[in-house]
């Protein structure tokens, strides 16, 4: 009879608080991850939206090629028109 009381007391006073403490810590940790994951998702969406302008790089590439081609033509004309410096 005494052993039963001791067992009941251990369950109520030791096992139950320990179980509650451990499970509460696990739940707190899991809940603390949720906002971080949501921020990561928002940042990833924002980064993806920012990269929508990456398609304009194709236009930039085309314009850069045209600009360099025009500069090369202009430089070629200057090379013909202007004499080289003496000693060059």
């Amino acid at each position: 009879m005494i052993l039963e009381w001791i067992g009941a007391a251990i369950l109520l006073l030791v096992v139950l608080p320990v179980v509650i403490y451990l499970l509460a810590e696990v739940l707190t940790s899991a809940r603390s991850i949720v906002p971080s994951v949501e921020r990561i998702a928002r940042a990833a969406h924002a980064g993806s939206t920012d990269l929508d302008a990456a398609a304009l790089l194709l236009t930039t590439q085309e314009q850069a090629i045209k600009t360099i081609a025009a500069a090369a033509d202009y430089g070629g004309s200057l090379d013909v028109i202007i004499d080289d410096v003496e000693g060059a």
């Binding site: 899991a30 991850i33 949720v34 994951v37 949501e38 990561i40 998702a41 990833a44 969406h45 993806s48």
Partner: peptide, 14 residues
């Protein structure tokens, strides 16, 4: 489950 849903969303955006 909330974490899983958030990670799925983030993985899609990545």
């Amino acid at each position: 489950r909330q974490i899983t849903a958030g990670l799925d969303d983030a993985i899609g955006a990545v």
